[in-house]
Design a protein around this nucleic acid. Sequence first.
DNA 1: CAGTCATATCGACGAGCGTCAATATATGCG
DNA 2: CGCATATATTGACGCTCGTCGATATGACTG
Lengths: 110, 110
Amino acid sequence: MDVKVIQNCCEPVLVETINASEADELAAAFKVLADPTRLRLLSLIANSPSGEACACDLVDPVGKSQPTVSHHLSILADAGLLAREQRGKWVFFTLVPERVAVLRDALAMG
Amino acid sequence: MDVKVIQNCCEPVLVETINASEADELAAAFKVLADPTRLRLLSLIANSPSGEACACDLVDPVGKSQPTVSHHLSILADAGLLAREQRGKWVFFTLVPERVAVLRDALAMG
DNA sequence: CAGTCATATCGACGAGCGTCAATATATGCG
DNA sequence: CGCATATATTGACGCTCGTCGATATGACTG
């Protein structure tokens, strides 16, 4: 919570809540959400009645090539937002709500 | 809320919650948060005791050049996350909590 | 084992973005 | 007016990223 006193144009104020490395981490997390294709993938999976979705079912709705969808799913899984489970020939993805909650809580400044 | 039926490898599922344009909008909003410098600026302003901060006081803590800070503040203001108010020679920025809440609510999938 | 289907990886291209130095604009002061 | 200060704009550079086609890996089937 390191807090510093800095001289400004009017009067000294207390500042600094998140440091540089915390900001880097958070920014990287939000960067994962900063792509429409990834948001649609998250939405598709989150709203699937079974709570999971196979990668093969996500290519068409998203309207991107299979390699692109695979790429985005990897990014989402690496970020911890999706859990990956291989079942035979198929790969199923599930939302990780706790991880989503971390980002939601980071926006608790208002 | 347009819902479509799509044939998958196992059985038909109901999918599609956010459409392409909604995803574009949301992604653009998250893209604004996907930068460490902008996050630190938001944090500095949000945690300022007066609730506002003058641009001149944000350059040093952030450790970037004045044009860079000005650039990021413009992006945050254009995104509606910051309110801009000119007072004499200085420009003061305030957090717009309602706008932050919009993004927080978008993460209500968990 | 050969073939098929699902997924992942590779390589390349183009667009977008963060950053800075230099400069412009604008506001206040003497 | 002329100078100092605060902020915005411009132009350029380098890097990252989303996308695709081609191809590789891997898993089941007959």
